[in-house]
Amino acid sequence: MDSITQAALGASVAAVVAGRHCKPKTLLIGAALGTLPDLDVFIDYGDPISDTVKHRGFSHSLFVLLPFSLLLTALWHHYRPTVLSFGRLWLLVAACLITHPLLDSFTTYGTQLFWPLDNSIAVSSIFIIDPLYTLPLLIMLIASLMWREKMAKLCSIGLIISTTYLAWLVVAYKVIEHRIEQELKHTPLANKPMFISPTPFNTVLWRFIILDDDKYYEGFSSLLDPKDDDGYPIQWAQRERGRLPLKQPSEHVAMLTKFASDFVQYQTIDDQLVVTDLRLGLIEYLPFRFIVAKQSPQQGWQLIAPVKMEERKVKPKHLPALWLRLLGSRDVNADLCHINECPSNTVIKT
Results as ranks from 00 to 15, higher is better:
residue 324 L to E: 13
residue 121 I to K: 05
residue 288 F to Q: 01
residue 324 L to M: 08
residue 136 P to D: 09
residue 91 L to C: 14
residue 276 T to K: 00
residue 222 S to M: 05
residue 286 L to T: 01
residue 73 T to P: 03
residue 258 K to C: 08
residue 281 G to M: 01
residue 256 L to P: 05
residue 182 Q to I: 09
residue 150 K to S: 12
residue 167 A to C: 13
residue 61 S to G: 04
residue 205 L to C: 08
residue 132 L to R: 10
residue 289 R to H: 02
residue 225 D to L: 04
residue 25 K to P: 10
residue 265 Q to I: 00
residue 304 I to L: 02
residue 263 F to P: 00
residue 204 V to N: 15
residue 16 V to T: 13
residue 168 W to E: 12
residue 185 K to C: 12
residue 95 A to V: 11
residue 226 P to M: 09
residue 214 D to W: 12
residue 44 D to F: 01
residue 293 A to H: 05
residue 201 F to N: 13
residue 25 K to E: 12
residue 292 V to C: 06
residue 55 H to D: 10
residue 213 D to A: 15
residue 51 D to E: 12
residue 269 I to C: 10
residue 268 T to P: 04
residue 206 W to G: 07
residue 247 K to E: 15
residue 321 A to T: 12
residue 131 P to K: 03
residue 284 E to Y: 11
residue 350 T to I: 13
residue 345 N to A: 06
residue 175 V to L: 11
residue 72 L to Y: 04
residue 153 K to A: 15
residue 310 E to T: 13
residue 124 S to F: 01
residue 15 A to S: 11
residue 255 M to I: 10
residue 34 G to P: 04
residue 89 L to C: 13
residue 48 P to K: 00
residue 172 A to Q: 15
residue 24 P to M: 03
residue 211 L to K: 06
residue 314 V to L: 15
residue 110 G to V: 01
residue 170 V to A: 12
residue 333 N to H: 04
residue 141 L to S: 04
residue 16 V to S: 10
residue 50 S to D: 08
residue 129 I to R: 07
residue 219 G to Q: 05
residue 265 Q to C: 08
residue 240 E to M: 14
residue 40 D to H: 03
residue 148 R to T: 10
residue 168 W to H: 14
residue 132 L to M: 12
residue 191 N to C: 07
residue 138 L to G: 10
residue 319 L to F: 09
residue 302 Q to M: 09
residue 243 R to Q: 15
residue 229 D to T: 12
residue 223 L to H: 02
residue 242 G to N: 06
residue 59 S to I: 05
residue 174 K to T: 10
residue 62 L to I: 07
residue 311 E to M: 12
residue 113 L to V: 02
residue 90 W to N: 11
residue 90 W to V: 02
residue 295 Q to V: 11
residue 302 Q to D: 05
residue 245 P to Q: 07
residue 125 S to F: 05
residue 149 E to T: 15
residue 44 D to N: 07
residue 283 I to D: 09
residue 9 L to A: 15
residue 158 G to R: 04
residue 39 L to K: 00
residue 235 Q to V: 12
residue 334 A to M: 12
residue 90 W to I: 03
residue 131 P to R: 05
residue 286 L to Q: 05
residue 125 S to A: 11
residue 242 G to H: 07
residue 167 A to D: 06
residue 138 L to Q: 13
residue 341 E to T: 09
residue 323 W to T: 11
residue 268 T to A: 06
residue 91 L to V: 09
